[in-house]
Amino acid sequence: SSRTRFTDYQLRVLQDFFDANAYPKDDEFEQLSNLLNLPTRVIVVWFQNARQKARK
């Protein structure tokens, strides 16, 4: 499967949200999905990866 290429804007929004809340609710994932024009699944995985990185 091909990797999603995030724009700088998408990454900034995701990172800002993550800094405020590492565990979004379903409706928040949906809002981010609509805002960033990305599939919810891609955003869910991004947050999983970000939490892994933050733990190191």
Rank of each mutant, 00 (worst) to 15 (best):
N34E: 14
V42G: 11
V42K: 11
R3Y: 15
L36W: 01
F18V: 04
P39M: 01
R3M: 15
L11I: 13
D16F: 03
L11Q: 14
V42A: 11
N21C: 06
Q31G: 11
T40R: 09
K56T: 11
D19M: 14
S33D: 01
R51I: 12
T7I: 03
V13G: 05
F17E: 10
W46T: 03
S2R: 05
Q52T: 11
S2Q: 10
N21S: 08
Q10S: 04
Q52Y: 09
Y9A: 14
N34M: 12
F47L: 02
Y9N: 10
F17C: 07
D16P: 00
T7V: 03
K25C: 07
S1T: 12
N21R: 06
P24E: 01
R12P: 01
A50G: 05
D8Y: 01
L32R: 01
L14F: 01
R5P: 13
L32D: 02
P39D: 15
I43W: 01
V42L: 13
F17I: 02
S2C: 09
R41E: 13
N21H: 13
D19F: 05
D19P: 02
R51S: 06
S1D: 14
I43L: 08
S1N: 14
D19N: 11
V13I: 05
N21D: 05
N37I: 06
L36T: 13
P39V: 00
K53E: 14
N34V: 12
K56M: 11
V45T: 11
D26N: 08
L36Y: 01
F17D: 01
A54G: 14
V13H: 08
Q15A: 08
V13D: 02
P39L: 01
R5W: 15
Q48I: 10
Y9F: 04
V45S: 12
F47E: 01
Y23Q: 12
K56H: 11
L11G: 08
Y23H: 07
F18R: 03
I43N: 00
A20N: 15
Q52E: 12
D16W: 02
F18K: 03
V44T: 11
L35P: 00
Q52H: 10
D26Q: 07
T7P: 01
A50D: 00
K25T: 08
Q15V: 05
E28K: 04
Q10G: 01
I43F: 01
N34W: 03
L11R: 09
D16H: 13
L11K: 08
Q15H: 11
P24T: 01
Q31V: 12
L38F: 03
V13R: 05
D8P: 06
D27S: 10
N37M: 11
V44I: 07
N34R: 09
K53A: 13
P39K: 07
R55V: 11
S1L: 07
N37H: 12
N49C: 08
V13Q: 14
V45I: 11
F6C: 05
R3K: 15
D8T: 08
V44A: 09
K53C: 11
T40V: 10
L38N: 01
Y9S: 13
N49W: 06
V44S: 14
I43G: 02
R41F: 12
R5Q: 14
K56F: 10
S2P: 09
F18C: 08
D8C: 12
N49Y: 04
P39W: 00
N21V: 04
A54V: 12
Q15E: 13
R12S: 08
R55N: 07
F17H: 15
L14T: 01
W46E: 02
Y9I: 04
T4M: 15
D8W: 04
Q52G: 10
W46C: 01
F47G: 02
L36N: 00
K53T: 12
T4R: 04
A20C: 04
S33R: 11
K56I: 05
R3S: 15
P24L: 03
W46I: 00
A20H: 10
E28S: 06
A20W: 05
V44E: 11
K53N: 14
S2D: 15
I43K: 02
Y9W: 07
F47W: 04
Q10C: 01
R3N: 15
L36R: 02
V44Y: 03
R3G: 15
D8E: 09
A50N: 12
L35V: 13
Q31H: 08
T40C: 12
V45C: 14
S1R: 10
Q31T: 13
A22W: 11
K56S: 14
T40Y: 13
V45F: 08
V45K: 11
S2I: 15
S33T: 05
L32W: 03
F18W: 04
N34L: 08
F6V: 07
A22M: 14
L32A: 03
P39I: 01
V44C: 13
L35K: 15
D8R: 08
V45H: 13
F6K: 04
L36P: 00
F18Y: 13
R3E: 13
F6E: 02
F6Y: 11
N34G: 11
F6M: 14
D16I: 07
T40G: 07
F18N: 02
D16Q: 11
V42D: 13
R55K: 12
L14R: 00
V13N: 06
F29R: 05
D26E: 07
R5T: 15
K25R: 13
R51T: 05
L11W: 05
Q48T: 08
D27P: 04
F18Q: 06
K53Q: 09
L32G: 01
V42I: 12
A22L: 09
N37A: 10
W46S: 03
Q10K: 00
A20L: 07
D8L: 05
R55S: 14
N37V: 09
W46L: 00
S1G: 15
N49E: 14
P39N: 08
Q10R: 02
A50V: 05
V45R: 12
R41P: 11
E28I: 05
F47I: 04
K56N: 14
W46R: 01
Q52I: 07
